[in-house]
């Protein structure tokens, strides 16, 4: 399709919506009114906008409405809590990235080798025994099997029930379930920090039905010691990872209000199926 041959009309009606408030060329948009409030307009723009607001009832009302909105936000929002929450979320995604990058150099060891060699390197992370891994199966749902690779070990093995873990250990999960869906895995540690274990992207990753299907990434445990709850969430439709994290945060807040210490949290309250697992991190022994 090509553009129309002449300039299009400048006022277009939105079906079902009331008419726009702008009456003339001097009328100010919300962006201009916001920039007036934040001091982003030039001296001339500021003078013109203020002059117009004084004459135009519609723009004056819009200006007052925005001012009230700012005043309400300033008086009701807990800015310190909002800032702390945003910083915490930013750090959570940063740490997720660190795990992925931390993983990458080791996968990159076979650089220059064939793809088959890379596959072999990955295979070394697979369990060496047929012992059933610990998992948590949900009714009508799914489970995750967990495998661990200690820093001084060549290959990964099954994580046994109650087996303590250490900072620097790496975990890999496998999916067991008869249904497809979109999977996200988050974890709450003893300090109350929520981390994203899977997937690396912003949206839950599609997973096919199957048994012992390895998730295509691993995580390296950090130095926070104590219990940690891993929550896997499988949804029928794509869901933003940030929505899962937000749900975990709400569940964590609710648990805290009920006197439950981190990392204990209740159901996330999403229209999805959950599976959980608890691990315990202890300090690294001097000799393993």
């Amino acid at each position: 399709m090509t553009e129309p041959p002449t300039d299009p009309p400048n006022d277009i009606a939105l079906p079902g919506a009331p008419a726009r408030r702008r009456l003339g060329p001097g009328c100010a948009s919300d962006l201009t009114l916001d920039q007036l409030a934040t001091g982003e307009l030039s001296v001339a723009e500021r003078a013109a906008t203020l002059g117009h607001i004084g004459l135009c009832a519609a723009c004056g009302q819009a200006h007052n409405r925005l001012q009230e909105s700012r005043a309400t936000f300033a008086s009701t929002a807990n800015l310190a809590a909002l800032a702390a929450d945003a910083l915490s979320r930013a750090q959570a995604t940063t740490s997720q990235r660190r795990w992925l990058f931390g993983w990458a150099p080791r996968l990159a060891l076979p650089v220059g080798l064939s793809a088959a060699a890379v596959v072999m390197a990955l295979a070394l992370l697979m369990p060496s025994s047929g012992v059933a891994p610990p998992d948590t199966r949900t009714k009508g749902g799914f489970s995750l099997s967990t495998y661990v690779k200690h820093p001084d070990q060549e290959s990964a093995g099954t994580l046994h029930l109650g087996e303590p873990l250490h900072p620097g250990d790496r975990l890999q999960f496998r999916y067991n379930g008869s249904d497809a869906g979109f999977l996200t895995v988050v974890a709450v540690d003893g300090a109350g920090q929520i981390s994203i274990y899977f997937p690396p992207g912003e949206t839950a990753q599609k997973i096919q039905p199957g048994r012992d299907l390895p998730l295509p990434s691993a995580v390296e445990l950090d130095g926070t010691l104590g219990r940690e709850i891993i929550v896997a969430v499988r949804c029928a439709a794509p869901i933003a990872v940030s929505d899962v994290v937000a749900a975990a945060r709400r569940a964590q807040s609710l648990a805290g209000n009920n006197g439950r210490p981190a990392p204990d949290i209740g159901p996330l309250g999403l229209p999805c199926v959950e599976a959980r697992q608890e691990i315990t991190k202890i300090a690294q022994p001097k000799t393993r």
């Binding site: 916001d34 934040t38 925005l66 909105s69 700012r70 309400t72 936000f73 300033a74 929002a77 800015l79 310190a80 909002l82 800032a83 702390a84 945003a86 910083l87 930013a90 750090q91 959570a92 940063t94 740490s95 997720q96 990235r97 660190r98 920090q193 981390s195 950090d222 926070t224």
Partner: peptide, 26 residues
Amino acid sequence: MGRPPSVDRAEIEGLYRSYGALVRRR
């Protein structure tokens, strides 16, 4: 955990004060 962002909480609070209402309203 991972590297903290190169910004402190006071600066973020200031940004919320200046722009929080704008973002929330939109």
